[in-house]
Every structure is written in C-alpha cells, then in structure tokens.
Design a protein around this nucleic acid. Structure first.
Length: 441
DNA sequence: GGCACAACTTGATCCACAGCTTTAA
DNA sequence: GGTTAAAGCTGTGGATCAAGTTGTG
C-alpha cells in the first residue's frame, strides 16, 4: 500500500480501516463508511505516518508522529534516547465524525498538518447528511472519548495495555507480520472483544497492531473447523495441510454447520458442548465470551418460528438479544417503519408484521454474513488457486460460507446504485443510492 | 393423526462492472 | 520462452420470488 487512498487513488490516505483492510483519505473514509449501518461500525484509526501501510497504534508526543507497532519499535525500541519518548495510544473511531469530533477523539488531531488541512478541505465539503449520525460516533466500548489514553513512559520492554483495550500487548520485540500467534494465545487476540457481549461482530474492537488478514483468515478458518468438525481434525489439517486442504475442509465444515442449523436441534447440544469444552482452553474469560458472542451463529439454530420463542441467541437470552437489536443496524431495520408507512393503522398491521419478519430475516442474514466475513484485497490472494477452485460454482456455495474475498469489489458494490436491488448502469436512473440514499426520480 | 391454510424462513436469482485468468497471436 | 491483447469469468449487495418449514384450527 502506498500513500494514496485505496478507494479514490487520488487523495493521500490518512486513516486505516481494519475491516476493509484499506487505507483511505478522509473523504472516502466518510463516504464509504456512511454507506450503511454496518459499515458505520467499522472501526478506523490513523495510518502509520512512517510506513503508511499499517494502522497507527501510538503517537509519539515528542516527534508528533503516529506509528504502528513495528515502526514504534524500530523508532523507540532500539535507541536508548528515543525510548524515553512520551507516547499515547491511539484509539479507534467508528461512524462519521466531524472535524470537531475528531479533535475530541484525538487531542492531537489538529497537530497533524495533513489531517487538519484535509479535514478543512474534505469534511468541510462533505455532502453527506450528518443528521442522525452523531450517535454513530461510537468509540469502542470502554474507550475514553479523549481518544488517546496517556501511557506516559510507555515501556519499551515488557507488557502494557494498548489503549483502553483489555488486551495486554507485548512490545518486547517487533512482530514479524506473517508470524502466527503463539499457540498459547491463539484464541485470544482475535476473539477478545471487550465489552461487546452481543454485538455479533468482533471486527471492530481489536487493537492489535500486528493485525494482518492472513492471520485472521487462518484463525477464522480454524474457528470453522473447530465448530464444524472434531478438534483433532483441525489440528491434523494444520499439520498436514496446506491451504488447499484447508479450503476443502472449510467447505465441508460449512456444510456441516448448515446441516446442524437446518436439521436437528439436538445437534446443537453437541456443538455447544464443544464450545464449553473449548472455553477453559482460553485463558481469558473475555475471550471465551467473545468467542460465543461473535461466532456462535452456526451453533444456535433458528428453525421455523423459533426466533419468536424464548430461545437464546448467540448464547444470550432474549433480553440481551434485545440489546443486540439495539445496535444501530438492528435498530434501524427492526424498530423503524419505512417513512412512507402510515403510523400503524389497523389495516396495515398484517403487512407490517410481514415486513417486520422479512426485516428480521435480513438482519439475521446480514449479521451472519458479517460475522464470518474476511476481507481480502484484489491483489492479495492467500492461495494462488483460481476462483473456480475456491468456490466451484456460484450456485453451489455451501450455506453460511459467505465470505468477502475481495474488499475492493465489496467497496464498489457497497456504493453502487441499484434499482430494486439490482445494479444499474452508471448514469441510468436508480432508486437506491447507498451513498446519498436519495431517489433519482 | 391428517388436512388445509397462514405465517414465516431461506436459498436462488438478477443486475453492472472492475479486475482477474485464460487463450491466442 | 516472453510479451501483448482480447475474450471470458468471477464476485460483490440488495430486492425479489418461490419453495420449504412450521404453527394453528
């Protein structure tokens, strides 16, 4: 990745979106992440000003520069003089903050020349309606809105707490980016989502600066293997298998997961039992909690009208499922009536119920997909198989296998105009514009 | 228990198009 | 064998439909 925005390729990239694995300028960041409720939940952070490719993790007060973990170590871990520099952790943000809100998130915001300037130019010209988005400015739970928690005299050696996350981050040595996590911590880094009990999506809360998609993918695949088949099988896969066998097994496990969901509820018990068996292996209780909250979709099954019954959802009770629905996407889709609907007349009760049911389904589907999505870049492929091998046929996709493999395509699709859900030619009349959400007629 | 119907769930399909792969020159 | 151009293929999200499943009388 270079200095230019991954999306427009024009402006200088300033922020990094982990969910999209993309470096964006402020304008595109705002456009892309205001497209829908889910994208607004993507957590972003500053881009490392040294390597311009990794998310920044600390800001050096002395040098007034934001650095990723590797650059931080290179800058401060090797020199006795620079290791005494005061550094602040940099927190993530979500939603579509204004310049003022940026300043409140990062006290040093306006100290960044390119930021302040870009902010004036870009945010000042924003056409996106900010109404209703204030609440989208949601720092990860537990996050101090001051944004940068002071970690004066950040120890260069040893452990410290990165930002407000509850994850101890070792700074003892620079991480090799392709390095797999240590076995002992394998489940922790990607599964620990402090405070997010029922979000269903863990993507946003990581403050892991050695975050790389290869690693995540491996762990997600591992997850599917864990829950789709016996644990020993997955271990065998990692020992014997390259990625190809991994992918083959992924499909199998996905199918197995589906058969669980479609079929006998009794199977849930065994799956849940597996989860319980795994839990103690996670040293961090929050990790286990997050594991349940983020990835239990294939385990908890909904058949027929069970969604209306008192069934637990992703390991939470109906009540907490209500909390789940309170997150922005759900609240919009579940609670809101379409604006053109009359306010609950008796005659429309039936259709309202019907549309609510469809909304419920769509929300569930969206959550399910989001929970297992892994973003790749068009130019970075994990394996050099052609697409046909990765997924034999568009129509033979195993259920629950939805994975976003190409972030750039997703980004395009996210902003593409549609008519009744179908893409329309550029310039044609459309009835849905994800960017402006206005009608063309 | 079996039937009919309503309500609900869910997979398949469609669209445009950028970017990738394959093939031929 | 290496390069280039053209053709074909793939994947992306939302709306819609139809088929399947479940609940009720």
């Amino acid at each position: 990745m270079g200095y230019l925005c991954d999306f427009c390729g024009d402006q200088r990239s300033l922020v990094y979106c982990r969910s999209d694995a993309a470096c964006l300028c402020l304008s595109c960041d705002r456009n892309v992440h205001s497209a829908n409720a889910l994208s607004r939940r993507h957590s972003r952070t500053l881009l490392c000003e040294r390597c311009n490719s990794q998310p920044a993790f600390v800001r050096c007060v002395e040098e007034k520069i934001s650095l990723c973990q590797n650059c931080d170590w290179l800058a401060h871990g090797t020199s006795p003089t620079s290791s005494t520099h005061k550094r602040q952790t940099i927190n993530c943000y979500s939603g579509c903050p204004s310049a003022a809100e940026f300043s409140s998130i990062w006290s040093f915001f306006l100290d960044i020349p390119s930021m302040g300037e870009a902010c004036e130019q870009e945010l000042g010209l924003m056409s996106i309606n900010e109404n209703g988005n204030k609440s989208d400015l949601v720092p990860p739970e537990g996050t101090n809105l001051s944004g940068s928690s002071q970690v004066t005299d950040l120890p260069t050696k040893g452990k410290f707490w990165a930002g407000t996350s509850s994850i101890p981050v070792s700074d003892s040595e620079p991480r090799i980016l392709d390095q797999l996590p240590e076995p002992g911590n394998e489940c922790m880094p990607k599964l620990n989502c402090p405070g997010k009990k029922v979000s269903g999506i863990c993507e946003d809360d990581n403050l892991y600066d050695d975050f790389i998609m290869d690693e995540v993918d491996l762990e997600l695949e591992n997850y599917q293997e864990l829950f789709g088949m016996a644990l020993s099988h997955s271990e065998e896969l990692f020992e014997n298998g390259g990625f190809e066998s991994l992918f083959e097994t992924k499909d199998m496990s996905a199918s197995a997961g589906e058969s669980h969901c479609q079929g006998a509820v009794a199977a849930e018990g065994s799956s849940t039992g597996l989860v319980n068996a795994i839990q103690p292996a996670c040293s961090n209780a929050a990790s286990a909690d997050s594991m349940l909250s983020t990835k239990t979709e294939p385990i908890v099954c909904f058949t027929g009208r069970q969604s209306q019954s008192n069934i637990s959802f992703s390991g939470v009770t109906k009540d907490s499922a209500g909390d789940y629905q309170d997150c922005d996407a759900s609240s919009m889709l579940l609670m809101g009536e379409p604006p053109w609907c009359p306010p609950c007349p008796e005659s429309s009760l039936h259709s309202a119920n019907r549309s609510n049911a469809v909304m419920r389904y769509k929300e569930k589907k969206k959550t399910r997909n989001a929970g297992c999505s892994v973003l790749f870049d068009d130019h970075i492929r994990i394996v050099s198989l052609n697409d046909g091998q990765l997924c034999q046929s568009h129509h033979q996709k195993p259920l629950f296998e939805k994975k976003v493999r190409y972030a750039s395509r997703k980004a395009r699709a996210d902003v593409r105009r549609r008519v009744k859900g179908r893409f329309v030619k550029a310039g044609d009349v459309y009835d849905y514009d994800p960017l402006s959400q206005t009608r063309s007629y």
